[in-house]
Design a protein around this nucleic acid. Structure first.
Length: 204
DNA sequence: CATATGATTATG
DNA sequence: ATAATCATATGT
């Protein structure tokens, strides 16, 4: 179905470079239940040891964060609030623990399957563009919709089960930036505009 | 070993 | 505004 993948070179750059460029790219997960995918619409850059908001601040290397220290182009996934998974793309170079959090998607393939996984009652045909987007407009939500769990921890994103395809190109005028969400504890690092949002039209 | 808490979400 | 819910991080 999909043959192209973003090359390793795409990921071998700083989180600040990769985060905005990930917008419009297609995140795909192939499972026994079927294929689900969506265009990336929102990301956040986490720059590693110096970034107080990053899990690897101060070089913290633990069982949870080890994937961030590994080679780029792999998945860093963690559980938050005891109930939701968050999906990140490891970037930069091995030993340089940077990552990009994927915060939202615009659903593409496998919408019926996403509805089931997210336990949405609404009928597929009666789904408004807004309702459709609500399926994957949060880091925990998109992991539920695409069935991303710790099983995919460290997964090679140039591989064949959980991967990122080129998708569509986004005009940089349609990208806005904001401070990252829920990182108040990070002092001056909390205010940096390291959240990137693709301002697409809901019904396009 | 004990404790506090979080890169969130759903519901009221 | 607040509850849900637990792996991880940190300290003793």
């Amino acid at each position: 179905m999909y043959t192209k993948r973003l090359p390793l070179s795409f990921y071998a750059r700083s989180a600040l470079e990769v985060a905005p460029e990930l917008l419009g790219k297609l995140l795909v997960h192939v499972t026994d239940d079927g294929i689900t995918s969506g265009y990336i619409t929102e990301t956040e850059a986490y720059m590693g040891p110096e970034d107080k908001a990053a899990h690897t601040y101060g070089g913290r290397k633990t069982k949870r964060t080890q994937a961030m220290f590994g080679p780029p182009g792999h998945a860093y996934i963690y559980l938050i609030y005891g109930m939701y998974y968050c999906f990140n793309v490891v970037v930069a170079t091995e030993g340089q623990p940077q990552a990009v959090l994927v915060r939202a998607l615009k659903p593409k393939d496998g919408i019926q399957l996403m509805l089931t996984r997210r336990q949405v009652k609404e009928n597929l045909h009666l789904l408004t563009p807004k309702k459709l987007y609500q399926l994957t407009n949060g880091p925990g939500k998109l992991c539920q919709a695409l069935a991303i769990t710790k099983e995919q921890y460290g997964c090679d994103l140039t591989g064949s089960t959980l991967f990122i395809a080129p998708g569509i190109s986004v005009d940089h005028h349609d990208i806005s930036t904001k401070p990252r969400v829920n990182v108040d504890y990070a002092d001056e690092w909390a205010q940096l505009p390291w959240r990137f949002i693709w301002e697409f039209f809901l019904d396009s």
